[in-house]
Design a protein around this nucleic acid. Structure first.
Length: 601
RNA sequence: CGGGGUGUAGCUUAGCCUGGUAGAGCGCCUGGUUUGGGACCAGGAGGUCGCAGGUUCGAAUCCUGUCGCCCCGACCA
């Protein structure tokens, strides 16, 4: 692979469209909904084999090769060592690991396709959805000394996940290309260092490929701490909500986001009077209580939710106007939890949902509860209204401090756009994003299970501290298109483009036109560009439409008319301007253009 | 896996309600005229109407089942 300053080129020489294979389509297939999916197909990048299964056509493959090469370079700069693990894993590896039960639902099993013999009940082999279960036993066997740590191994390989619902082309596929890295350190501090190196490598990778990706704090699940970031490419069709502040640089997945809605020094409210029961026949929603004749606004109500955690009910108290962010309940330490059913609620609380509350002494069977967890924001209510745990009745003048039974306060509510950022105090903004990368400190979850231990300089054994890191390369390809397209087609960033320069020869039957095309192509190549020459016998309109559709950054146009004037045209995909370039300046202008593009990329 | 939709030529689709030998556009092939933003004329090839049953003299059309695909939900790179 030739390498020029900042850019990446593939090792082959210029391609001629008539000899190559770029099947473009005027119309989108009916099964594509979003722009990037339509363009993947229309620009001749991929073709579908089945749900979530795609063939990369030559153009698409070239983009993949560019992305994987840049990824490889950046992960190596971040300390990664490349290797390649099998796609087919013995099921035993997974059975010995910590997540076989959870993961097997999305795993493909592998047996003989032979006829007449049914596969065994338990799979002998599975296709790898990720590789902790392979790398950890490998490292356990090969590394035993602190002298050989830290290490960070990565591969760029196809992954298999039998997604219940593949979606949006490459966005959620059953088979996809991912860079996955696994770091092994002797200490937590070392793991954090490896993590930071990967974070930097990711930032470099996304910047080089021309993707505007942002690192956001992500839900760490059982791990706790702040050691998980997701890399998101902002896009309307994304699956995740990101809350962010440009003023402070704060950005977090909605599952994790916090705000400064509740001032740290908020004084406890003075009681407004004695707690008082009042009848609310048939009123079982926040909205109903907020309207006449009761007219209690949502932010003056307490909302009481009942969940079952590891078999035991627990309560979550929020402001009436707030939504629960379920992922935040992960911090409570339950293995599994779910909303309780009305049948489970009544015996514990003494009322049906709609009349629940946590005022001391009103809960029918408080001993059954695993805890009462209140969101901080209820302190803003001060004195409010809550259910009386008696169907058809509520309580008013309920004071948080004086009246509510609370095991512990925490952050359980879903943050909304517009709330003040905890750092800058400016309003948080909201946008949708596509998750293209994730970095995570694993701790010793896998090293414990597989016995991956090292001996320190005191001859003591310790489990290695692991981190894992993933970049969805094929998903990133599509995210780049989602981020970079217009009404006419793809607009490739320089470093991700399948070719950098497209030379449109409008009159390919003229030998002097083709000679010039090859000459300009050679000039572009020697400046470090990948070149495609459109030498097809098509009308100019067809060529221009296809050029815009496949989105090559720099277009050079050679026509019979221009040849007579001694000029060709130079046009960037991102601009409407067409520059007429005298043939005498051809080489210099092309070299300058290519170098400028490389420098900006 | 739950809810909704859909399956007709390589692609986009009409026809289905109200059963009677399957139509168009794009693309493709041949010839001609064209040639700076998806040309035009003439001719041509291409479809067991997803599959399997059923109703009927007769099914793309009605019924049942099944499979594929798409969208919404939970999950993920």
């Amino acid at each position: 692979m030739r390498r020029r300053a900042g850019g990446v080129s593939l090792p082959d020489s210029m391609k001629f469209w008539s000899q190559y294979f770029i099947p473009t389509l005027k119309e989108s297939p009916a099964d594509a909904e979003i722009p990037s999916h339509k363009l993947l197909i229309r620009a001749g990048l991929v073709r579908k084999l089945g749900g979530g299964l795609y063939t990369f056509l030559p153009l698409g493959l070239r983009v993949m090769q560019k992305l994987t090469q840049i990824c490889r370079e950046e992960i190596e700069r971040g300390g990664g060592i490349e290797l390649q693990m099998p796609h087919v894993h013995p099921a035993e590896n997974w059975q010995q690991g910590p997540r076989w039960a959870a993961a097997r639902e999305i795993m493909f099993r592998v047996d003989s396709a032979g006829d007449g013999k049914r596969g065994p009940r338990e799979p002998e082999y599975v296709l790898g959805p990720t590789h902790e279960e392979v790398i950890t036993p490998l490292i356990r066997a090969e590394i035993t000394s602190y002298r050989d740590l830290p290490k960070n191994f990565f591969q760029i390989a196809t992954k298999f996940r039998n997604e219940i619902r593949p979606r949006f082309g490459l966005m959620r596929a059953r088979e996809f290309v991912m860079m996955d890295a696994y770091s092994f350190d002797t200490t937590d501090q070392g793991a954090i260092k490896s993590y930071q190196a990967m974070k930097t490598a990711y930032e470099n990778f996304f910047r080089r490929i021309g993707a505007q990706a942002i690192a956001v704090e992500a839900d760490t699940g059982v791990m706790g701490g702040s050691f998980s970031h997701e890399f998101m490419i902002p896009a309307e069709i994304g699956d995740d909500d990101i809350l962010y502040s440009e003023a402070s640089g704060y950005a977090a997945n909605r599952e994790k986001a916090t705000s400064a809605l509740v001032p740290a020094d908020l004084p406890a409210a003075e009681p407004a009077g004695a707690v008082e029961e009042f009848a609310t026949p048939g009123i079982v929603t926040i909205a109903a209580l907020a309207s006449a004749p009761y007219s209690v606004p949502g932010d003056k109500q307490f909302k009481t939710l009942v969940y079952i955690g590891d078999g035991k009910p627990f309560l979550v108290v929020l402001r009436g106007c707030d939504e629960l962010e379920e992922a935040k309940l992960g911090s409570l330490g339950f293995g599994v939890f779910r909303p309780a059913t009305p049948e489970e609620i009544e015996p514990v609380m003494g009322a049906k949902p709609g009349s629940l509350g946590t005022v001391k002494g009103t809960i029918k069977n408080p001993d059954a509860l695993a805890g009462i967890f209140a969101d901080q924001a209820i302190r803003l209510v001060g004195n409010g209204v809550t259910g009386a745990n008696k169907d058809g009745f509520h309580l008013r003048n309920v004071n948080v401090q004086r009246d509510l039974a609370v095991t512990r306060f925490g952050d359980f509510r879903r943050v909304q756009a517009g709330e003040p950022d905890s750092i800058s105090g400016q309003p948080l903004m909201l946008r949708r994003g596509i998750e293209v990368g994730h970095i995570f400190i694993l701790g010793t979850k896998y090293s414990d299970k597989y016995g991956a231990v090292y001996t320190d300089d005191q001859k003591q054994n310790h489990p290695m501290v692991m981190g894992c890191y993933g970049i969805g390369i094929s998903r990133t390809l599509q995210a780049i298109i989602e981020q970079g397209h217009d009404a006419d087609g793809v607009v490739w960033p320089w470093n991700a483009a399948p070719f950098h320069v497209l030379i449109c020869v409008l009159d390919p039957q003229l030998p002097e036109a083709m000679d010039l095309a090859k000459k300009l192509g050679a000039a572009a190549e020697s400046a470090g560009a990948d070149v495609l020459i459109d030498d097809r016998n098509e009308r100019p309109g067809v060529k221009f439409k296809d050029a815009d559709l496949i989105g090559i950054p720099l277009r050079l146009t050679i026509g019979g008319k221009g040849l007579k004037e001694g000029i060709f045209e130079l046009k960037w995909r991102t601009s409407k301007d067409v520059a007429k370039v005298p043939l005498a300046e051809a080489e210099a202008r092309i070299a300058t253009a290519v170098r400028e593009a490389q420098a900006k990329a």
